[in-house]
Design a protein around this nucleic acid. Structure first.
Length: 497
RNA sequence: GGCGCCGUAGCCAAGUGGUAAGGCAGAGGUCUGCAAAACCUCUAUUCGGCGGUUCGAAUCCGCCCGGCGCCUCCA
């Protein structure tokens, strides 16, 4: 069994084999930095994060490229309206994007090419297309002539596209030879100049069209390997047409090679059953979640609970359910660590490390072997994360049962922890550690000692009062045979007494 | 009008020809001073509806009902 992925190009699930194993070149369409990215954007980025992590867990050597669109109609308009240079407007949103990415535990791409820093390769691409007769100069820009590119439409399968009757045939398209042609380069207008969004080019001063940057940057980044074909190009479904279709035309028009071998598209996230819309206020940003104290692991869990090719309806109830699952996993791991000996297994240790499981003195536990097998099988089946999660929870219940029985040998517990951590390295859905200062910690310890004394004296009223007081500050207790364990609930302030 | 997706328990959600994973919520129980956590048991004779194909269908086909997306710069 090996990885199989749904390829939009063929509309089939196919075995994934990179061009030159173990290297995988992965290009994912990044954000347009005109505003804060919303949770729909992040659903897509999370799906890509899962893909990346799974590939790496399988031993692939991934080069992950994600572009930043820092020049387009919206960024220019906003910069011009604010009377500031383009870069000054976009920079805060770039920083915000990286912060949100880190908050959601999305692994950074290896490179983040920015459109404004890749003008030269874009100009080069347009020149080549003009030379080949695939592009032409119009009145307001350079256009790609799709009529000259016979395979146009192969990705979206809308060959000989019929324009919707009476719609979208805007009056400003007079400059095109064919209404379906798309802009490669837009000649500079006063607004562009004002925002500093204009560059000289042999075919006329202007700025790149949206689709151009992805082709130029992707080809530029993989040139180091001497190839002109990406292994995987991913994005959300709305990009299939026209964005990715146009990228194919631009790139293959120049290279004559397939632009990408696998095209992966994630479905939309919806809120309250409908598409997010800024107009109706029906949208959320990652920062909104952060401000509400949402554990990033809960959001990841929510996202991975639905297959990436299914629409996901975001609701508060679903997020709470996901948060409960996350809590359960964290609880389980804490138990396992305690049982396995806390020293070498502190939270956050590199879960992908090797050397485990150690000497098989005892036969491997069936649940451990089962998780190893079923998790991988689920993920290899077109990243079936919901099914993989099912395998994880089945493992958790079985292992909790073993832990309750108390008859596990240390080596078995270590093996269980190793496998569990390996799985978590892919999903990364363990609860965030609640932040608290030393003062708070001391306050908790004092109360715990006091409660312990009260319990010894069988003054349960006093003990329960202390427990209530602790709970009010988000501290939950668990009395066990080995003493009282406590845990800080996330999202409740844990300092400044 | 064209292309496409979806409808599985109170909620979320896998499963796409062989007799319904998993999570959340709920009920009862074990453990506990009481809790909490964990575990055990229970909770869809049934997969939007109606037909058809088949030894066998949630899974394939047809029709209908309901929801959603894309169709030029929106992840």
């Amino acid at each position: 069994m090996s990885l199989r992925l749904y390829n939009t190009l063929t509309r089939r699930v196919e075995p994934f084999v990179p061009l030159e194993p173990p290297r995988v070149t992965l290009y994912t369409c990044g954000p347009t930095v005109y505003n804060y990215a919303h949770i729909g954007n992040f659903r897509t980025f999370l799906f890509e994060d899962l893909l990346r992590r799974h590939l790496e867990a399988q031993g692939f050597d991934v080069l992950h490229i994600m572009n930043l669109t820092d020049v387009d109609d919206r960024t220019i308009k906003a910069a011009a309206a604010a009377g500031v240079p383009l870069a000054q407007h976009t920079e805060p949103f770039v920083r915000a994007f990286f912060e949100d990415r880190d908050y959601l535990r999305i692994r950074p791409a290896h490179v983040y090419p920015r459109a404004t820093e890749c003008i030269a390769p874009m100009v080069e691409l347009v020149s080549r297309l003009l030379e080949r007769g695939l592009a032409y100069r119009g009145e307001d820009g350079v256009y790609f002539a799709i009529g000259k590119f016979p395979t146009y439409g192969c990705l979206s399968r809308v060959e000989r596209r019929e324009l919707q009757t009476g719609a979208r045939v805007a009056s400003d398209e007079y400059a095109k030879e064919d209404a379906r042609d798309f802009a490669l380069w837009k000649f500079a207008d006063p607004t562009d100049e004002q925002a500093g969004a204009a560059w000289d080019a042999p075919f006329g001063r202007g700025r790149p069209g949206w689709h151009l940057e992805c082709s130029a940057m992707a080809l530029q980044e993989i040139r180091r390997f001497g190839v002109q074909t990406l292994d995987i190009h991913a994005g959300a479904v709305d990009l299939i047409f026209p964005h990715h279709e146009n990228e194919i035309a631009q790139s293959e028009g120049v290279t004559g090679q397939p632009f990408a071998r696998f095209w992966l598209h994630g479905e939309f996230l919806q809120i309250q059953g409908t598409k997010m819309s800024k107009r109706t206020g029906n949208f959320l940003t990652a920062r909104d979640l952060k401000e509400e104290g949402v554990d990033p692991a809960a959001f990841r869990m929510l996202v991975f609970s639905t297959h990436y090719r299914q629409q996901l309806n975001y609701t508060d109830e679903a997020l709470e359910a996901a948060a409960e699952g996350v809590r359960r996993l964290g609880e389980f791991r804490d138990r396992l660590v305690e049982a396995a000996g806390a020293a070498e297994a502190a939270r956050g240790a590199d879960a992908g490390g090797d050397g485990l499981p150690p000497l098989p003195i005892l036969p491997p536990l069936p649940p451990v072997e089962e998780l190893r097998r079923s998790f991988t099988a689920a993920m290899e089946d077109d990243l079936n994360a919901p099914q993989a999660l099912g395998a994880v929870f089945t493992f958790v219940r079985a292992m909790n049962r073993e832990l309750d029985g108390g008859s596990l040998a240390p080596v078995q517990r270590g093996a269980a922890l190793a496998v569990f951590d390996r799985v978590m390295a892919v999903l990364d859905v363990l609860p965030a550690v609640a932040e608290m200062d030393a003062e708070f910690r001391a306050w908790v310890e004092t109360h715990l000692r006091e409660r312990e004394a009260a319990r010894k004296a069988r003054d349960f009223a006093r003990a329960d009062a202390l427990r209530t007081e602790l709970l009010a500050r988000g501290v939950e207790l668990e009395d066990g045979p080995g003493g009282t364990r406590w845990r800080k609930r996330r999202g409740m302030e844990g300092g400044g007494l």
